[in-house]
Amino acid sequence: MDEVVITLGGVVKPGTARKNKTGSWKVFKPVVDHEKCILCMRCVNYCPEPCISVVDEKIEMDYDYCKGCGICGDVCPVDAIEMVYETKG
C-alpha cells in the first residue's frame, strides 16, 4: 500500500479548503433564471459559503464549493433560483 504522510497534529499550510471541492457534496444545484432575477443581491448576502457573486451584472454560482443548501433559492424574492436535482458521473 502507498505510504501516507501524516504531519504532526495534522498541521498544514493554509488555503487547503480550496483544494477540497465541497461542491461535490450537493444533491440539488441552484440554477438562476436571469430573466426573472432583479439583482437584489439577497442570495449573495445569504449564501453561507459564500459561493455567489455578481459578474458582468449577472449572478454567478461557484458550483465547485456550493453544497446545495438551497438558502439562496429560499430567500430569492422573485423565485428566480430553482433547486435542480443534480446527476453525477
Partner: peptide
Amino acid sequence: EVYLTTENPLTFGALATPEYYTEF
C-alpha cells in the same frame, strides 16, 4: 518547530476524511 503567527498562517485541526483519519 512549527507554530502559528500572523506572518506564517497555518491550519490546525482541519478535516481528515476516512482515507486519513485512521492514520492520525
